[in-house]
């Protein structure tokens, strides 16, 4: 699936849309940034409830291309600003981490990037 495909999923809103629309290769779900740092794969989508600037910093460092903020948690302005600078897409959804992960996993499986 491509990053832009996330936006068209039900209950998803795009909070930061300035990004290069590349293929999403994988996903990672965690609210621990050190864990994301250690284990998330390049070109992944990050599913989390951590909606602040450091989420973007970690994403940028490990090559996460899109962040999905779960449970409609509000994202701070400086987070979105940082994401814009780094070209990382930010989406928001009402689903929790489990629901969102399973949804994204289905889409990744049905439209494999490779």
């Amino acid at each position: 699936m491509k990053i832009s495909d996330i936006q068209s999923l039900e209950g998803f809103a795009c909070l930061q849309g300035e990004y290069t629309d590349t293929q999403v290769q994988d996903g990672y779900t965690s609210d621990l940034l050190s864990d994301v740092m250690a284990h998330a794969e390049e070109d992944s989508v990050l599913i989390t409830i951590q909606a602040h600037k450091n989420t973007v910093a970690v994403s940028s460092l490990v090559g996460v291309v899109a962040i999905i903020v779960c449970s409609n948690r509000p994202a701070t302005d400086d987070m979105l600003e940082a994401a814009r600078e780094e070209g990382i897409a930010v989406f928001q959804t009402d689903g929790n981490q489990f629901q969102t992960s399973s949804l994204i996993a289905q889409h990744l499986a049905s439209c494999p990037a490779r």
Binding site: L32, S34, A38, H52, T55
Partner: peptide, 15 residues
């Protein structure tokens, strides 16, 4: 609450 302090920092660095 900021997503840090999971006790992975230094072990990650070392790894």
């Amino acid at each position: 609450s900021q997503g840090f302090g999971a006790g992975m920092g230094l072990p990650n660095v070392k790894r």
